[in-house]
Design a protein around this nucleic acid. Structure first.
Length: 339
DNA sequence: AAGACGAAAGTGGTTGA
DNA sequence: TCAACAACTTTCGTCTT
């Protein structure tokens, strides 16, 4: 993929990616604009399964999650056998070691620290390896671009996790990330906006549907509920009931409805706690979804739990109201005594 | 008593002048 | 920079089982 940008040296618009060398270069003046992209393809070809297996070499895979991609070495610290060497050799050894360390410049030291932080958060949040890698890759890009300077490393890392998890279709809420990183939600949001602008990330808003599987499993509900909650969202997402509303609230309400329909009713409180919205929000979304789906009577049947299918909505409504007013009357009759 | 419901006021963030 | 605004939260009282 050739990027839309000009060569800063000659202004040439044509830039080329040479994946075998891992560089992005200008076709006119030959300036290298980006390097360090890794060509993960084998440098040999194989024509049979046997060749494939015999030619494959092993070793730890190259990874972005280590600050040096797991391929550098460090000159050993041990002095135990130094006495065997002449003083000249020994001095040379010390010098080499010093320079090798010094070569790990500030960028690498930053990465070293940051990737440890990333590691911590990833394991806390239980995210897949693919996301871990992608965040590490983006973070390195950000550091090289110099956009991390002046901002806290933690907030950038967290913002990237937020972004990548979302683009991988398994979003985490800002509240969860805040709990994992100890950074305020406001700060995460700000860092996220900043970094996605800087790195030109195009990330679609999370949908309620993407939140469902995880919330369902956190609530200990089964696949049936999950499927039916997803269906509820699918059926309503074209209408205007969902758009613009917070996806977590919608997901919570869909799960609530699915659980009621599936005979495994959860309290609004429990769902609210897990999802991270209030009961009120669940109620509001719940109302929206139920009217949008036109399943008021179905829900009511389950909750009242006694009537037969043949009954229509209108008589039921009237009946309920009457019951309510009777109740009110009885309350009123008792009340006047007090106060 | 506990869960569900809903009104009203408050909060933090976005948008557009 | 400010005000208007939408979504969501907090709080609290009422209804329902």
């Amino acid at each position: 993929m050739n990027k839309k940008r000009n060569c800063p040296h000659c202004g040439n618009e044509e830039l080329k990616n040479d994946s075998s060398k891992g560089i992005l270069y200008c076709t006119k003046c030959g300036a290298i604009l980006e390097e360090g992209e890794i060509d993960r393809q084998a440098e040999w070809r194989s024509f049979s399964a046997e060749q494939q297996s015999t030619r494959t070499r092993s070793g730890a895979p190259v990874t972005f999650t280590k600050y040096d991609k797991g391929i550098s070495t460090e000159i050993g610290k041990g002095n135990s056998e130094m006495y065997k060497l002449s003083s000249k050799k020994r001095n040379q050894y010390y010098r080499l070691r010093k320079w090798n360390k010094r070569i790990m410049d500030s960028t690498e030291r930053n990465l070293n620290y940051s990737l440890a932080e990333l590691e911590r958060q990833v394991s806390y949040l239980i995210l897949p390896k693919s996301i871990h890698e992608e965040v590490a890759r983006l973070y390195e890009k950000a550091v090289k671009k110099g956009v991390v300077r002046g901002r806290s490393i933690e907030s950038i890392i967290t913002a990237l996790i937020y972004a990548v998890a979302r683009s991988y279709g398994i979003p985490r809420t800002i509240s969860e990330l805040s709990a994992a990183s100890g950074i305020e939600k406001r700060e995460i949001g700000r860092a996220y906006r900043y970094i996605s602008r800087q790195l030109d990330l195009r990330i679609l808003p999370a949908t309620a549907k993407q939140y469902i599987p995880r919330f369902v499993s956190l609530l200990g509900l089964d696949g049936k509920i999950e499927a039916s909650a997803k269906k509820i969202i699918e059926e309503t997402q074209t209408s205007k009931t969902i758009s613009g509303k917070g996806p977590t609230g919608v997901a919570a309400a869909a799960i609530y409805i699915a659980a009621v329909l599936g005979g495994r009713k959860q309290t609004q409180r429990d769902i609210a706690d897990i999802v991270g919205v209030t009961e009120v929000t669940i109620r509001n979304r719940y109302k929206d979804l139920v009217t949008s789906l036109g399943i008021e009577e179905q829900i009511e049947k389950i909750t009242t739990d006694e009537e037969t299918e043949e009954e229509k909505i209108k008589p039921r409504r009237r009946r309920r109201k009457k019951i309510v007013s009777k109740f009110k009357l009885s309350q009123l009759k008792q009340k006047p005594e007090e106060k």
